[in-house]
Computed example of a mutant assay.
Amino acid sequence: MSKILIVAEHLDGKLNSSTARCVSAALAIKPEAIEVLVLAADAASVAAEAAQIEGVGKVLTVNRAENAHALAAVLAPQIAAVAGKGYSHVFAPSTTFGKDLMPRVAALLGVAQVSDVMSVESAHVFKRPIYAGNAIVTVEAPASSIVAATIRTASWPAAANGSSNASVEAAGVEVGLPSHTRFVELAQGKSDRPDLQGASKVISGGRALASSENFEIIYKLADKIGAAVGASRAAVDAGYVPSDLQVGQTGKIIAPELYVAIGISGAIQHLTGIKDAGTIVAINKDAEAPIFEIADIGLVGDLFKIVPELEAAL
């Protein structure tokens, strides 16, 4: 029977919703047990959150000062040590955190990683996107070794928080940690808007905004409906917004309930990042823009006239 270990992603003492999405993927395997591993300097609050996720049978904690910041070189040896204690699978979200971490874990376990799992066919057979999402490939991992995989969070709903109250235990991990990698600082933008990867509503702007000053109309509309703000790569490359707002193949893969693309033509790399969105709305003056091919609602016109009118109507 399968026994799955999920590496929790967290920041500032709060569990990221990507962990609950990994639990949904794990549940699709119908395993004997699902356990969550929390590595932190003080794992108590994150472990308590993880224990509430439906389907989780146990939460394991590793409290070490070296785990105060998520450094892949430091976390990987500890995860590999725990995963080697009878687990058939070890999962992490296919986010910046998981993409940085899991190749090291897989290498330490001596297995090939399965990346961006979007559906489960069986305990060792999965589907994942390739060629910027233009094709889906079926991959089979050897049944004789641990499966190390990242989960495409946009393809899975978050497992519910409910009456579940899994036990929390300390995991005994005695491994030497590398000293050549050290945390210096974390530079990140502060915003009262929802997190882009977890938001239910996202409004994105493209190169047609023409300047960072003009991007303010995107921010104002997003604030009106409590949405996160995103951008196309073209807008990021032009310097209108910071890179952490980029949506697409080389940015963030998201699946909000509502996605509004304003002044975005719809290059395939951008569409890859939003294909799992619920309702897609496009506003563009070019009626032939590729974005209209996938949009549920399309409006052809001048965004500088339409967006203020839309904000006023709201």
Rank of each mutant, 00 (worst) to 15 (best):
G198N: 15
K201D: 06
A68T: 10
A72M: 06
V173R: 08
A187S: 14
A199Q: 05
A222N: 05
Y240N: 02
G55F: 10
A81L: 10
H270L: 09
V300L: 03
T150A: 10
R233E: 07
K252D: 05
V236I: 15
T96E: 13
A92L: 02
N284V: 08
A228G: 07
S212W: 03
S17N: 11
V247G: 07
Q269T: 10
V62K: 01
S144M: 11
I79N: 02
A312I: 02
A287Y: 03
V7P: 01
Q78W: 04
E309H: 10
K220Y: 00
V90R: 02
S179A: 14
S2G: 05
I297D: 03
K305V: 07
L5V: 06
A313N: 11
E309T: 12
Q188D: 07
V46K: 03
P290G: 03
V184K: 13
V147Q: 09
Q113T: 08
S155V: 09
D286T: 01
P129F: 05
V173T: 11
K127H: 12
K14D: 06
S167M: 13
H270D: 05
E140Y: 00
P178I: 07
N16E: 12
L39Y: 02
A238C: 07
I130C: 09
H69P: 02
A26V: 07
